[in-house]
């Protein structure tokens, strides 16, 4: 990245009022492969593009189960994600231990956002290099949140993070109004369409590189789960039926979206 005088220390503002280290951390999120999240009245789902470093390598895990009612998809440094997801699991479990209830999703996201914020302010620390999409269900229904290393968290109808996520976002912005009444199958189809937009030219979605995470009642292609509606990750062969449901890609109208600078991935990123 572009070195300058104000970026060696995250506790110092630049004259423009920016924290460069934090902005670099946001870049780390963009290095990771894309993840898409969207929500209907009944479901909240995640879709993520898994990467592998080569033919001989396995695909990097992109989704983590936090509790029966919460799951996340990550973009950025997998190792940072493991630390944070572990923390989220502890929080969720202690809520069950102390209050015998699933932790409200917004509060769970707020706890990691608070952790991330500390890292943007204290000397000798670095911000997390990972962003999350968090889906969950609590007493107020299904939710989708984004968490980013800056310490921000927002709730969304639909969102995407990671490499070339702007293309997915464009798709989501065009269609999000119809998501509310979608069935699970329709929602996944929209999600896959959005995720497809983030692919490099010669690549396509397949059962190996696509993960789907679901919160909400089971769909037509699923077996019953227990407890009902719990977070589950669908990978491998079971994804095929959803991939087959996808429509042909619309021919790009106008200029194709310029690829983002960072295509090549560093080893640590997922």
């Amino acid at each position: 990245m572009f070195r300058n005088t104000y970026d060696s220390d995250n506790t110092v503002f630049s004259p423009q009022g920016r924290l460069h280290q934090v902005e670099y951390a946001l870049e780390a999120v963009k290095q990771g492969s894309a993840a898409v999240g969207l929500r209907s009245k009944t479901h909240a789902i995640l879709l993520a593009l898994k990467r592998s470093t080569g033919e001989l390598a396995s695909y990097q895990q992109k989704m983590f189960r936090i509790d029966d009612h919460v799951g996340i998809a990550i973009a950025g440094l997998t190792s940072d994600a493991r630390v944070l997801s572990n923390f989220m699991r502890q929080q969720a479990m202690s809520e069950r231990m102390v209050f015998n209830r699933p932790m409200p999703v917004n509060r769970l996201v707020a706890t990691i956002a608070d952790k991330a914020q500390v890292n943007t302010q204290e000397y000798g620390r670095r911000p997390y290099g990972v962003g999350f999409l968090v889906v969950g269900q609590d007493q107020s229904g299904p939710h989708l949140f984004e968490f980013s290393p800056s310490g921000n968290s927002y709730e969304y109808f639909a969102m995407s993070i990671g490499a070339r996520s702007q293309s997915a976002k464009t798709y989501l912005e065009k269609h999000y109004k119809s998501f509310e009444d979608c069935t699970l199958e329709e929602l996944i189809k929209h999600g896959l369409h959005a995720l497809r937009e983030t692919l490099q030219q010669d690549k396509e979605l397949n059962v190996n590189n696509t993960s789907v995470g679901i919160i909400g009642p089971t769909g037509r292609h699923e077996k019953p789960v227990s407890p009902p509606s719990k977070f589950r990750i669908i990978e491998g062969e079971p994804v095929a039926v959803y991939l087959q449901s996808m429509d042909q890609k619309e021919p790009a109208d106008g200029a194709p979206v310029p690829p983002t600078a960072a295509d090549e991935d560093v080893q640590m990123s997922g």
Binding site: F99, N100, R101, P104, R107
Partner: peptide, 16 residues
């Protein structure tokens, strides 16, 4: 103070 609409009911209070 969370002001998020979640409230503690008898089940939660009893567990606590």
């Amino acid at each position: 103070t969370h002001q998020d609409g979640h409230e503690l009911g008898p089940v939660e209070i009893h567990e606590y």
